[in-house]
Amino acid sequence: MTTQQDVKESLKRGGYIADEAIATAVFLALRMQKPILIEGPPGVGKTGLAKTLSQVLDFPLVRLQCYEGIDEGKALYDWEYGKQLLYTQMLRTQLDNQLSTATDLRDAVEKLASEESLFFSENFLVQRPVLRSFLSEKRSVLLIDEIDRSDDEFEALLLECLSDFQVSIPELGVLEAINKPLAILTSNGTRMISDALRRRCLYLYINYPDVEREVAIVRARFPEICDELAHQMVGFLRKARDLNLRKPPSVSETLDWAEVLSILHIDKLTPEVVANTVGVISKHQADLEKVEELATEELGQ
């Protein structure tokens, strides 16, 4: 991919309609080998972008879902204690043979110590997502999802990985990435991400798309929805977003709704249609009424 336009088009082939900012961000991330930090309201396609990228670029997707209390054992690497123990047990006789030649205690200890590196080798290293994506044969897409759910400590842990694409393991030394992955971090903004992490990333804010882009998104995913209906749907949902709902309908709701409408073979929106399918667009009881009211107002005549 040599220009933003290329990026845009290949994303489109994967069914993801990108705007200028998104295409530019992806293009720069690929060229400058920098992670992208994506913020925006839920359901506007932050995770979707990573998935589509892995599909169109043919990079394997390595996903790390963050949660409160995630640590390096879950994200970077871990030692397989059980396996280490088991090996120690099974190699017991071997070790005995080795040590039986030792003349005194000091000698035995030295012999044992020379074999120590065997037990802290990559054989016993469990690769967790970050390390796995660094060491994978093929360049991969590393998706660190909902980073705002993790703690500050974890964020700090990621700094080294994301700026230098390397992981330091005390027993083994520094493991450098074989293929630097395309790292994508997403955040819903429930917590402020530290400036240190922001500085290491390109920052992309994805907001709700404009009418034409949203219509294009619907049409790309569900070609059977005619242009007129798509416009009607998108127009209605945009008004619904201004209603100050508890959970405003996002693009993922638009797509769900489009799917429902295409299954039901509906080609025009009426208040009844909205009332029957309102559960797809709004996810709170208090919101249901507001949306239905809007439907009678907007689509009543």
């Binding site: 933003q4 200028e20 900012a21 530019t24 961000a25 400036d195 922001r198 920052y203 804010y205």
Partner: peptide
């Protein structure tokens, strides 16, 4: 102009 704006914004601004 817009693409220059995008390029600068992606790299210089880190907060919505």
């Amino acid at each position: 102009r817009e693409s220059v704006r995008e390029l600068l914004r992606l790299t210089l601004v880190k907060n919505v």
